[in-house]
Design a protein around this nucleic acid. Sequence first.
DNA 1: CTCAATGATGTTACCGGTAACATTTGAATG
DNA 2: CATTCAAATGTTACCGGTAACATCATTGAG
Lengths: 341, 341
Amino acid sequence: MSGKRKGLGRATVHDVAKLADVSSITVSRYFKQPEIVSEVLRGRIAKAVAALDYLPNHAAGGLASTRGRIVAMVIPNISGPIFANTIQSFSDELNRHGYQLLLASSYFSMEKEESAVRAFLGWSPAALVLTSQYHSEGTERLIAKAAMPVVETWDYVPERKPVQVGFSHVEVGRQSVEYLHGKGYKRIAYVQNSLIGDLSALDRRDGYIARMNEYGLEPWVFVPTQADPFEAGRQAVNSLLLRQQPAEAIVFANDNLAAGGMLAGLRAGKRFPEDCAIFGFGNYAFSEMLLPSLTTIRPPAREIGEVAALRVLQALGETPVDGPVQHLNLLDCELIARESA
Amino acid sequence: MSGKRKGLGRATVHDVAKLADVSSITVSRYFKQPEIVSEVLRGRIAKAVAALDYLPNHAAGGLASTRGRIVAMVIPNISGPIFANTIQSFSDELNRHGYQLLLASSYFSMEKEESAVRAFLGWSPAALVLTSQYHSEGTERLIAKAAMPVVETWDYVPERKPVQVGFSHVEVGRQSVEYLHGKGYKRIAYVQNSLIGDLSALDRRDGYIARMNEYGLEPWVFVPTQADPFEAGRQAVNSLLLRQQPAEAIVFANDNLAAGGMLAGLRAGKRFPEDCAIFGFGNYAFSEMLLPSLTTIRPPAREIGEVAALRVLQALGETPVDGPVQHLNLLDCELIARESA
DNA sequence: CTCAATGATGTTACCGGTAACATTTGAATG
DNA sequence: CATTCAAATGTTACCGGTAACATCATTGAG
């Protein structure tokens, strides 16, 4: 139809400018710093914008100003019970400030993470958010060179350089032992995550081991071979309870394992916590619905997303909407004592 | 330091071109259609790219070609048990083809959806994916004008125009009744979602009502006032079982309600399904872990994401990686009969 | 009344790519 | 050997904004 290169074009600043009889830069200013545009022109521009149904093109704006309003996040997975809350709160907080979230999942694979980061950098995001402190060399190199704020989440290790928003997994491992030890349990076993790649889970195990040693108790780590967490839990319970010296308490690397294990035990006639105390991690949605309900540790998933967003926005020079919140980057987990331990 | 406008610049096509002693467009072609670049130049360019650690700027590319590689998705929520799988599979399939996912959540609010769509359009995404068939007028207008493929998910209503990938909520409602009726239950109640805005859930209720009527049974819809689904379920059970003619079976609008209701009943001494059959919807992660495990309907969450991605990619002229899959847009739910009904 | 300071608006160039068209090269053809 | 055509590469302009600088009122001080 038209001779223009793009027929189906939306209205541009230039169209608006022409209609309002101003220059394009004035239209641009109308959006970025309305206060420096006179009221007369503001009125004319507003009318033109409405008439043309103008939508600013952020890609062009970002290109011209080196300041896109996209923030990229790489997270192990979206669908799991763990990270969804972080993504949700992070995304919401970002949207509130006019930023958009670009998302990809790594499935705990450093290679996938690296390729996601590489793809993201092509959009020159305003900031980059990763999960955990463990990355491939290539990723480290990329983020070192990247001229944008980088935030790591779900881990907190003081000595690391990038901004971190999370908690200490080692501390969580220790806490579980402390709680059970306080209840008088001695033969406390630990069931490790069967998911390779989740390095933070191993930190929790290390915390367990360290605290056990401090108490003079012997650490007892079971490593399931089953990939499915539900099955892995069953496998662990079968192994740990069916021996002459069965475990008195079991700390599971996450609530899925714990639920799988407990259910297998229940169906086999065991009683919890009478026969064995069960301790999870994650406070998944179902944990309070189990019978007995599951004692576990709630990681600050939502808070991590919020604070990470806050840090990103601060680094970008945005003023927080509702006053300067004084969050720390080291967040607290909450031990939720229920029936199972 | 430098006099350039952007000091901290990454390498550009032009830098690569200069180093490889070719023109910029050749570098561009090297990435887009390598086969039309001679092997000699390909070699030189590859070397230059590596030397400069060049990363293409997608924003600029998209701007120049009107063909960004971003796909935008608006979904009610990320953290719930329902949509996460859809997001996950959708995002994965997209990434596989070099597209990135831009995500925002609407919390079942049409206004939020509209503002998200408006914000997204500023990035001129290659395609737009929404949830459900229900949108504000403004959204309808925006997507009608938008010159890009639009896909609606989680709903399937033949007469609608945009491509839809989902299932029939009405049919789900009918199925629940059929299953319970087949087991001999007559006094079948329905507990509605307390979450306003989730219009598709009302379609399920309508399916229930219609099928009940066809059987000559009287529909019996309970509308909880509690916002929290767990509490709402409890409220429903209390009301439906503590009367002289208690319900023989209860269909809950989702598994959260069902679990809440069932647990409240169990703690009050009721037995399921002996005293009352419980039927859910969603097949949330915990549903099989409950005692008794929950009979429910599994929506094709993951499949919806996959097929939606497929449709988007097809509309964009991408060839499917692993052969042309023959999915239909109307997907099947799976009734999972467990212990509770 | 002149001139500097201030605020409002415009001009120009450029961000980093790529479409469209132009040109060069080399092999095939008559 | 001239001609033709396709393949490989280059030139130019432009995508839709915005930074930097220039210009043009106003206004107020001296």
